[in-house]
C-alpha cells in the first residue's frame, strides 16, 4: 500500500467492518445459509459488551462444527449435544467468564435435549444461541426434531408423518415452564427488521447471564436452502409463510427487563 492510498483511507468514515470477535477466515457455509448472519451477530455482541477477554464459546457438532475457526475468543468443541454440560462447567468453575453455546436443532433438541433441559432447569448462567432450520444439514438432510409435518427429509422421504415421528418440538414453549430460564425468545432471520429484533433478544439473553439472572436462549428460525432444496429467497419466504406458523416468534420469558436509559 502506498502512502497516498492511506491518506485517502483516513479521510473516509468507516461505516461497516468485521467485528473484532471474528477472524478473517472465510465462512464455509452454503449460499443462503443463515449461520453466517448469526455468527456475525454473536461477534457483534461480544464486541458490544466488550467480552472478548473473558468469553469462552462452546461449539456444537453440525454445520457450525468449525465455528472455532471463525471466532477470536477461546473456544471449546463439544461432542454432539453436550455443549450445555460443557458450558455449565466452564461457567461454574469461574463465574466471571462469559459463556455461550451455539447449537443446531439436532444438537440441542434431539441428542442433547437432556443437557439443554437440565442446564435450563438449573438456571445455569450461560447463553444459548439456537439455530433452528428444521433439518440435519451437515449429515445430508435427515429429519430433525423440528422438521415440519409434511416436510420432506432424506429420512422422511414422503414428508414427516406425525403418527410415525411425532410433531416438531417447540424448544421455547418447552423451556418456558422452567424457572431457571431468565430470557427466552424466538426470532426469524428473514429481514433487516427481524435482525434488529434478534439483536435485542441477544442483548437480553446475554444480560441474563451477566446480571446473574439465569439461563438465556435465543432461537433463530434459520434457513437451509440446500437441504430444503429451495432458492435462498424462497427459503426466507418459507420461514415467513410456513415456519413461523409452527414456531411463532416472540418473547417467551423475560426476567431481565429493560435498561434504565
Amino acid at each position: 500500500m502506498r502512502d497516498e492510498d492511506i491518506a485517502v483511507v483516513e479521510e473516509m468514515e468507516c461505516v461497516f467492518s468485521r467485528p473484532e470477535a471474528l477472524t478473517d477466515k472465510a465462512f464455509h457455509y452454503c449460499p443462503g445459509c443463515t449461520h453466517g448472519i448469526v455468527h456475525r451477530l454473536v461477534a457483534e455482541m461480544i464486541d458490544e459488551f466488550k467480552l472478548m477477554d473473558r468469553t469462552v464459546g462452546v461449539c456444537p457438532v453440525g454445520c457450525s462444527v468449525l465455528m472455532y475457526d471463525y471466532f477470536e475468543c477461546d473456544m471449546i468443541e463439544a461432542s454432539h449435544g453436550r455443549a450445555p454440560a460443557v458450558a455449565t462447567a466452564v461457567k461454574r468453575t469461574d463465574p466471571n467468564r462469559f459463556v455461550f453455546t451455539y447449537q443446531g436443532d439436532g444438537d440441542l433438541a434431539s441428542i442433547g435435549m437432556a443437557e439443554t433441559v437440565h442446564a435450563a432447569a438449573r438456571g445455569d448462567r450461560i447463553t444459548i444461541f439456537f439455530i433452528n432450520n428444521g433439518i440435519y444439514g451437515m449429515t445430508g438432510g435427515q429429519m430433525a426434531p423440528t422438521t415440519l409435518i409434511g416436510q420432506r427429509a432424506t429420512t422422511s422421504p414422503s414428508g414427516r408423518d406425525e403418527r410415525l415421528t411425532g410433531a416438531p418440538i417447540g424448544i421455547c414453549e418447552l423451556l418456558s415452564s422452567l424457572k431457571g430460564v431468565a430470557y427466552l425468545a424466538r426470532v426469524p432471520l428473514t429481514s433487516p427488521k427481524n435482525l434488529k429484533d434478534a439483536r435485542k433478544h441477544m442483548r437480553k439473553a446475554i444480560r441474563a447471564q451477566l446480571e446473574d439472572k439465569g439461563l438465556g436462549l435465543v432461537e433463530f428460525l434459520s434457513t437451509c436452502p440446500v437441504q430444503w432444496k429451495m432458492e435462498p429467497i424462497a427459503a426466507m419466504k418459507h420461514i415467513d409463510e410456513n415456519v413461523v406458523k409452527v414456531f411463532p416468534p416472540g418473547v417467551f420469558v423475560d426476567c431481565v427487563g429493560d435498561l434504565q436509559k
Binding site: 471449546i76 453436550r82 454440560a85 460443557v86 455449565t88 462447567a89 437440565h118
Partner: peptide, 26 residues
C-alpha cells in the same frame, strides 16, 4: 470448590471436559 450433581453420566463427563479445558483439576 465446585460440586455439581449432573443429570447423567453423559453430562458429567462433558462437564469434566469443559472444566478441564479451562485448566481446572476436574
Amino acid at each position: 470448590r465446585v460440586f455439581l450433581q449432573a443429570e447423567s453420566e453423559v453430562a458429567s463427563i462433558n462437564m469434566l471436559y469443559g472444566a478441564s479445558a479451562c485448566g481446572h483439576r476436574a
